[in-house]
Structure formats: structure tokens, C-alpha cells
């Protein structure tokens, strides 16, 4: 369970990215965080694994107080939390399987990491992760030969290879075309249902959020303005989250019709 209690994040330049945020996310939920860019979505997601430190309040994940974690303990904590990024963040000059295996090095010794000596168990785990996102056949291709959608699925496989309990995704489909975006969102949904992994996803496109998530958190200027099941979302709530009428930019499917 992820639990925010009155969490603040104020950056060094004075920007208040999170303002008294309180929320609870149960294991196995599929949560979409929506809001304008700059509303604090990215900050919110990155505080969960302490890629960004909070400045006030209390944040616990499975009972662990995140802000007290340091060094080795922090690294151990992060192993259970996967992260997927907008720009995929793959090493393009190496093979797909090496990218996925990179998620295993946290558990390996430095010398094995240096020599690239992965155990058989690690290799199987990496290949199974690729199988789960349906690109097992690309295992030995170089990452830069893959399309954007395939690259994001490699990134997803890399996250799966670390056996996470939680997956945090920061705008995972923003760089993809609508068709690939659907495929990747389906992957997230399946992983969430089959493996009971909590998925917290930042997403700019409202239509995708409504289609795939069970629960929506709307955030505006660092404050939570809506938190509830997807089915209760109305046009009024969306207007409140975005502070304006929705535009074509906020929807991905509209673009598909162009």
C-alpha cells in the first residue's frame, strides 16, 4: 500500500509541486494520474521511489517510511518498484536482452556486473518478461532497430524482470502513436490483472486514462482535486482538473482521426 499523508514538495527554486497531498493506493490497483503538464504529476510519481525527496508530510510504501531511506536500504527498497519513462530510457547501442537483464544487476555482485555474468535464472526471468510483453523474438536485436512502441515494451519488460510489486509509469505512451499507445496500455492492464502489480500511471491523455484505469486521481497545481473511480468522472470533474475545456491535445484518439 502506498500512503501519502499531507505530503509537500517544494523545489529549491520555490516551486510548490505537491501541496498537502493525501491519498492511499491499495496493492493491485490501476491508478491514472491526470492533470495539466506542470501540475505535479511527475513529482508525485517520483516521490514514491524517492527519485525525488519530499519536503514535508509522511509517505509510506508497504509500511516503510520512504523519506528516512538512504544508501543501501533505499536501493533495496527500489528493487520492488519498477519505473517506466516517457522516453523509454533504453541503452540503444546494445541488445534488447541486455537492456532487460540490466534490471537484474541490482541483485548481482559488482564483479559479475562488470563481466556481464548473468545466472541462468536471471536470463530465464528476462526472457519470460519479454514473452509477457510479446516481443520474445526481438531478444537479440539491437534496441535501436525497434520501433517506439516496441522500445517501450522492452522498457516494460525490464521493469517486469525486477519482479516489482508496484510499477510507476511517467507518461509511458506520450511519445507513441495512438495504435501503439493502445498496445502498450493493454500490456499495462494485463500485467496489472494477471500479476496483481499495482500500476500508477501519469497520463496526459484523458481518453486513455478513462479507458484503462480503475481509478483516477486529478491533480491541479500540486493539489488533488479529484480522487475516485473512473466511472464517476463527469465533464464537470474534468473541467475542474484541467481548469478549462478539454482540447484535442488532451485526447489521443482524436489525433488518430487526422
Amino acid at each position: 500500500m502506498i500512503k501519502f499523508e499531507n505530503v509537500d514538495k517544494v523545489y529549491a527554486n520555490g516551486t510548490r509541486a505537491l501541496d498537502k497531498v493525501s491519498l492511499e493506493i491499495e496493492q493491485g490497483e490501476f491508478v491514472a494520474i491526470i492533470g495539466l503538464s506542470g501540475a505535479g504529476k511527475s513529482t508525485l510519481i517520483r516521490t514514491v521511489n524517492k527519485m525525488i525527496d519530499i519536503t514535508a508530510g509522511k509517505l509510506t510504501v508497504n509500511g516503510i517510511d520512504v523519506s528516512t531511506l538512504k544508501g543501501k536500504e533505499l536501493r533495496k527498497f527500489r528493487r520492488k518498484i519498477g519505473m517506466v519513462f516517457q522516453s523509454f530510457n533504453l541503452v540503444l547501442r546494445t541488445s534488447v536482452i541486455n537492456n532487460v537483464l540490466a534490471a537484474r544487476v541490482a541483485d548481482m555482485s559488482l564483479i559479475r556486473t562488470l563481466l556481464g555474468l548473468y545466472s541462468k535464472q536471471d536470463k530465464i526471468q528476462a526472457l519470460e518478461a519479454l514473452d509477457k510483453v510479446g516481443i520474445l523474438e526481438k531478444a537479440y536485436s539491437r534496441a535501436d532497430q525497434l520501433s517506439g512502441g516496441q522500445q517501450q515494451r522492452v522498457a516494460l519488460a525490464r521493469t517486469l524482470a525486477q519482479n516489482p510489486e508496484i510499477i510507476l509509469a511517467d507518461e509511458p505512451v506520450a511519445a507513441l502513436d495512438p495504435v501503439m499507445a493502445d498496445v502498450v496500455m493493454e500490456d499495462f492492464k494485463r500485467i496489472n490483472k494477471d500479476l496483481n502489480i499495482t500500476v500508477v500511471i501519469n497520463i496526459h491523455h484523458v481518453d486513455l486514462a478513462l479507458q484503462y484505469a480503475d481509478r483516477i486521481i486529478g491533480i491541479n497545481a500540486g493539489k488533488i482535486v479529484y480522487d475516485g473511480p473512473t466511472k464517476n468522472i463527469t465533464n464537470e470533474t474534468l473541467k475542474m482538473i484541467y481548469g478549462r475545456e478539454l482540447t484535442e491535445d488532451d485526447l489521443m484518439k482524436e489525433k488518430k482521426n487526422d
Binding site: 521511489n49 527519485m51 536501493r75 527500489r78 530510457n89 537492456n99 541490482a106 559488482l110 556486473t113 525490464r158
Partner: peptide, 20 residues
């Protein structure tokens, strides 16, 4: 980017440098 991704898996700095 890859460095950040590996850091998020809980790998140490040296390992992130080697692999990312």
C-alpha cells in the same frame, strides 16, 4: 535516461555506470 532507469531499479551508482 538509461542511468535514471537503472537507478530506479535499485542498482548502485557503479553498476548504473557500467550498464547504462
Amino acid at each position: 535516461g538509461p542511468y535514471e532507469a537503472l537507478q530506479s531499479t535499485g542498482a548502485s551508482r557503479a553498476k548504473c555506470m557500467i550498464k547504462a
